[in-house]
């Protein structure tokens, strides 16, 4: 539980932060909320020579609607995701997911960018962000680039961030009319636990308010990275939004998932829970889609 000494740097500009991060390479760590970094420092999993605190870099936090998109700064706290009116109204699965992360004390410190960069398979905010087609923006030695969030994770704890690259923001299109979404998590304890399975779904209905026009089902904790249940999503499109159709899609999602057995659950139980929680999440999202006319 002893943190090794390090040099500490507070850049005032993004470019300064990125060049310092590039210069020190694997000997540097980025500090944002710190709730994952400090754990890793205390466990001596990481022993950086330099810690770069990006909290003083302007423009990296905040929730704003710009030109039909929601822009989420990387430093936006999990508490702000949970309580923001604009997120609760337009992206309810994201505020629901935020409310499951850690404790109140952690949610005031932890940031959305940190939750994504940690790349835990069970990351709370990853399934909803993916279900809302989030685009992730990075800044590095070669300037800015962006990717769909689903292409950001490369394995447990692994991302496509290159040396010196810093995640700066997310952009989410504001959902279309007749869209509804939901997030559910299954864990042994209600709070202060990690997911056995977590799932975010989003449905958009056709003008008849019955046929499914668009569907997203994103599963966490059942594969090396958060994953779209793509076959289940495809199955839903063009079908009537009924419980039978939801149940079939949930079965497909369970087949697509690639869970492992670990201390939290067996593989078989996880697969069964993917089916149950996918169906429940679809059932929860449907009335929300019907309401948003």
């Amino acid at each position: 539980m002893t943190i090794y000494p390090f040099e500490y740097f507070e850049p005032k500009e993004l470019e300064e932060a990125s060049s310092a991060f590039f210069e020190h390479g694997s000997e540097a760590a980025i500090l944002a909320g710190g709730t994952d970094l400090l754990n890793m420092l205390k466990a001596n999993i990481l022993k950086p020579k330099v810690v770069i605190n990006i909290k003083g870099v302007p423009g990296l936090s905040g929730i704003e609607e710009i030109d039909g998109e929601l822009q989420l700064g990387t430093l936006t706290s999990i508490h702000d995701l949970e309580t923001s009116k604009i997120i609760q109204e337009n992206f309810p699965a994201l505020s629901e997911a935020a409310s499951f992360l850690g404790s109140i004390q952690i949610r005031f410190l932890a940031t959305v960018g940190g939750n994504i960069c940690r790349a835990a398979p069970s990351a709370e905010t990853a399934p909803p962000l993916m279900a809302y087609d989030a685009q992730v923006y990075m800044y590095g030695p070669n300037g800015e680039r962006s990717l769909p969030l689903k292409e950001f994770f490369s394995g447990p704890g692994q991302t496509v961030l290159a040396e010196g690259e810093i995640l700066t923001k997310f952009k989410l299109p504001i959902p279309a009319l007749r869209s509804g979404s939901a997030y559910l998590r299954h864990s042994i304890r209600q709070l202060m636990d990690l997911a056995i399975v977590n799932v975010a779904v989003s449905l958009t209905l056709d003008e008849d308010s019955e046929t499914i026009k668009e569907a997203r089902i994103v599963l966490g904790a059942v594969a090396p990275t958060p994953m779209h249940a793509s076959a289940a999503e495809k199955e839903l499109i063009g079908k009537p939004a009924t419980l039978e159709i939801f149940e079939k899609a949930a079965q497909t999602a369970a087949q697509e998932s690639k869970p492992i057995s670990d201390v939290r659950s067996t593989q078989d139980y996880r697969r069964a829970m993917v089916q149950l929680f996918t169906r429940r999440a679809l059932e929860k999202a449907l009335p929300r889609a019907a309401q948003k006319n």
Binding site: Y8, G34, L38, N53, K55, Q105, F108, L109
Partner: peptide, 11 residues
């Protein structure tokens, strides 16, 4: 409320 073990004093 925050957990003060998860925040650096400089921060």
């Amino acid at each position: 409320p925050i957990t003060s073990c998860m925040l650096l004093a400089v921060d």
